[in-house]
């Protein structure tokens, strides 16, 4: 039994121009202690997937219309808001993209960590403070006692992100969802935070769902990866397999788009066109207008995920076999 199972998740957002369905029934599993990367470009639906998992999507104006989310053998979609509050922060916690806006500017950071601890655990202030200081120390912050009494504006972006990670880990969650945790940071600070994450993953027993657009970060941290495009997962499987032999044309294109460091390239490969808006997703395979291998079938039918060799799934008609086992 997996820790988290998302099956056929579909969302709907209402706007003045009518409803939009940005997710097209996506499914993935996350085992205990696994680090899964959810990768895609702007507008592919990765952040709303994360928000749906902890049922915060209604605060962004969305509604889950189909599918199921099973966490720890419990169906989250049937839970009430009150029951969800006991899961959020305790069993599942979220680290959001922007460290600048995630902390309350008028409270000392130490008190914000204590708040997170006291909401979920019955602890006195003194005991909670001891735990908070220990957490700050664990985040590799020098002088925890000083930082404890500081306000968010006194801290740098990297420090704030560390505090947010401390809050997220304060109750020892089984699943941590990190939505672009390093995107707003500078490269040297990003390296510090990734280093911290790698250490935390080793020690803590938590599973991580890492949402990012940066394939370098995925290669560095994740066990498995799911590539999203226009509301679909187009390829998923173990990181090594997907990075070394990408099967879906989009995955292949993405990996070729990144300038390589080890050699000087004459010309960079590019994927033509741009990501479609959820309002005008093409019929058929949503990638076909940008694909080099478009077949007749792609224009009218949507490929589902099929299993390739062990544990890898890809959604492309090039790999569909007919009943004789030959490629169609």
């Amino acid at each position: 039994m997996s820790l988290l199972e998302v099956n056929g998740l579909k969302l709907r957002f209402y706007s003045l121009d009518g409803p939009v369905e940005p997710l097209n029934g996506i499914s993935f599993q996350l085992e205990e202690g696994e680090v899964l990367g959810l990768v895609g470009e702007t507008g592919c639906g990765k952040s709303i997937t994360a928000k749906s998992v902890i049922k915060l999507i209604s605060y962004s104006g969305g509604e889950i219309i189909d599918g199921s989310i099973i966490f720890d053998n419990e169906d989250l979609l049937s839970k009430s808001e009150k029951e969800m509050q006991k899961i959020r922060g305790v069993k599942i916690s979220l680290i959001s993209q922007d460290p600048m806006t995630s902390l309350d500017p008028v409270y000392r950071v130490g008190d914000q960590i204590i708040e997170a601890i006291q909401v979920h655990k019955k602890l006195r202030y003194k005991e909670a403070k001891k735990e908070a200081l220990e957490l700050i120390r664990l985040m590799g912050i020098p002088l925890p006692e000083k930082v404890f009494y500081q306000y968010p504006h006194e801290l740098s972006g990297g420090m704030k992100q560390r505090i947010i990670i401390a809050i997220a880990l304060s109750c020892g969650p089984a699943l941590v969802i990190a939505d672009e945790p390093t995107t707003a940071l500078d490269v040297t600070i990003q390296a510090q935070i990734i280093d911290l994450f790698s250490k935390l993953i080793e020690h803590a027993q938590s599973a991580f769902l890492l949402i990012t657009h940066d394939l370098g970060v995925v290669a560095q941290m994740c066990d498995s990866v799911a590539i999203m495009y226009a509301g679909n997962i187009v390829e998923k499987g173990p990181v090594k397999k997907i990075f070394h032999s990408p099967k879906h044309p989009y995955t292949e294109g993405l990996l070729q788009c990144i300038p390589k460091m080890d050699r000087k390239q004459k010309k960079l490969k590019a994927i033509p066109g741009s990501v479609p808006h959820p309002r005008n997703f093409p019929t058929g395979c949503r990638f076909y207008p940008r694909c080099q291998h478009t077949m007749k079938k792609c224009l009218s039918q949507q490929p589902g995920l099929i299993e390739m060799d062990d544990k890898r799934f890809v959604a492309c008609f090039r790999y569909f076999k007919n009943s004789d086992g030959e490629q169609e």
Partner: peptide
Amino acid sequence: SSIFVPDPD
């Protein structure tokens, strides 16, 4: 050294 190369190896 803070550049992450997209290669899990």
